[in-house]
Every structure is written in C-alpha cells, then in structure tokens.
C-alpha cells in the first residue's frame, strides 16, 4: 500500500488537511504526519488536528511529534507498513 510522510512545523498545522487530501488523491492510504514541535505541546498539536483526524476515516493516519528538523528527517525513512502488517 502506498504511503506518504509529511513534515509540518507546529505553526502550520492548518495545512495538514489539504496535504492529506492530495496524498489520498495520489492513492496513498497510509499517511504519517511528522510535526516539529516548538511552542506547542503534544496535546495542543493533537487538539488542533482533531478535525483532520476525525474527518479522515479512510486512511491509516499517524502523528509523530519530534523536537527538531533533524529528527523529522530521520523519520522520513519510516516504513509505515511496519506498524500495521
């Protein structure tokens, strides 16, 4: 199954919904959102993503909160299928 990993800063979470739509249009049904945390807590990030999470009942969605761009890049090698297989 096709996957897509998307990196966002915690200040640009409003872009997540559109990017998920694009990924779905490309046939990606496993989507990982990698969020680089600066000012927001994990709870605040999840809260802001609530509508995106609740509105997307079809894809397998995961949210990975990291502290730096470097950590985010490391996660770009993630094989999301490992979680579900």
């Amino acid at each position: 199954m096709k996957q897509r990993l998307l990196i966002f800063k915690d200040s640009e979470l409003d872009k997540a919904g559109e990017e998920i739509k694009r990924a779905l249009a490309d046939g990606c049904f496993r989507i990982g959102l990698i969020i680089i945390k600066s000012k927001k807590t994990v709870g605040e990030i999840i809260g802001e993503l609530r509508d995106v999470i609740k509105g997307n009942i079809y894809p397998s969605l995961s949210v990975w909160v990291v502290k730096s761009e470097e950590e985010a890049q490391k996660l770009m090698n993630l094989e999301l299928g490992e979680l579900y297989a």
Partner: peptide, 12 residues
C-alpha cells in the same frame, strides 16, 4: 520513536 497518535484506516 513512536507516534503520539495512530489510527487504522479502512484499507488496513
């Protein structure tokens, strides 16, 4: 690292 949130989609 582990995800803070994970949801299974219909295709999974």
């Amino acid at each position: 690292p582990v995800p803070s949130y994970v949801k299974m989609g219909i295709k999974d």
